[in-house]
Amino acid sequence: MHSNFMGISATQCFLPTYHRGVSNAAPIAELWNVSPFDCLTYCIVNAGKTGDGCASIVYHRHFSTCQLYSHDGTYNGAKVVFANGHDYYNRTSFSGICQDRHPPARGYPQRRNGKPRALGLPQQTTPLKQVVQDRLSHDNFAPHGSHKSYYLYPNQPKTGCSRNQKIGYLALNDFTLTPTTPIGKVNGVDKFGCLNYCIQNIDAHGDPAFCTLISYNSATEECQLHDDTAKEAGLFTRVEPRKYSTVAEKFCLDKNVRCPEEKIFEVILGKEIHDSALHVFTNFETLSECIDACFEHPICRAVSMKNGNCSLFATNVEVEADLLHDSGNTIVVDCKC
């Protein structure tokens, strides 16, 4: 089954969204006693032989089965819904290494009737850009010293990265997640041990745990592993001030960026940089977009983001901390490697 498809990861041809399934739709095929890799491989290598194209997959973790669909889960009355123990894979590429080995005779019905929606995130009736702006237009960041909860700027949840990327972490010190149920807990480890469980996507027993972020308390040495359900609207990580706690969230950066693997980037909430910006971008939707822009600039060391505006700076915020001033709804990231 794996011929000419070895080494392909889910993030190359598919975008996973965990704890999601497809309702009100009949699959084109169902496989039993298989791994997620088997299902993804079958989707591209073999599904076309039946005449139907494979556009999405739902994998059942507890039963090792998967269902294949000819659409993205939103076609002809179908819906992508929350489903514990199920993982949804939306096919994002149909060319190159992701091209069908056997072109389906009946093609893809959703393509014939309009462009399918990208489902890297749980479905929303409001466009992503508007969701981001609506959230950020409210005072989601508290005044300095306040105990009001904060929103971290939106980022698509990640459990892993593609072959041409490496994992980094966005870390907020002295913050914890607003109470939410973790998918796993590990006790008696330090912060780096906690991160290691998340990197490997396993829990304390070595069982799979699709980790996107951690919440760690250094006073109690408790490590909480969280998946994408910890995020509001599939994007926002809600945190609140708490001493001795750290929230760290995975994100992907290009392998060509001169930063070590698993680099931790400090996130500073409620501050802005009082210095001349190298460049200002508008209408950015995620914090990782802003950070990527910094990596592409030869002398950028930090970014600030406010209401979708991303500013790049050559400022070393660790050394020049006096240039950080209070700003209720601004976020700063130290991007130097």
Rank of each mutant, 00 (worst) to 15 (best):
K129G: 09
A209I: 01
R301V: 00
V257T: 09
R101Q: 13
C310S: 10
N4A: 11
Q124S: 15
A204K: 08
D292L: 09
Y69F: 15
Y153K: 06
I299N: 13
Q110T: 09
R20E: 06
V132K: 02
Q165W: 07
L68S: 03
M6N: 12
Y89C: 02
I8H: 01
G234H: 05
C294N: 02
Q12I: 09
C259K: 13
I299H: 12
P298R: 07
R20L: 13
D174L: 08
D207W: 00
Y75C: 07
H86M: 14
F313P: 00
K49R: 13
F82P: 06
P179M: 07
P157I: 06
R61M: 08
C337K: 07
I183H: 01
L177C: 07
M305C: 04
H147C: 08
K243F: 12
R117S: 10
S276Y: 11
V280M: 09
E30P: 01
C259H: 13
T125R: 10
C223H: 00
Y75F: 15
A233M: 13
T237V: 15
T50G: 05
S162L: 06
A302Y: 00
H138E: 14
F313G: 00
G120A: 12
R242A: 14
F175E: 01
S93G: 03
R301T: 04
H2S: 11
L195I: 12
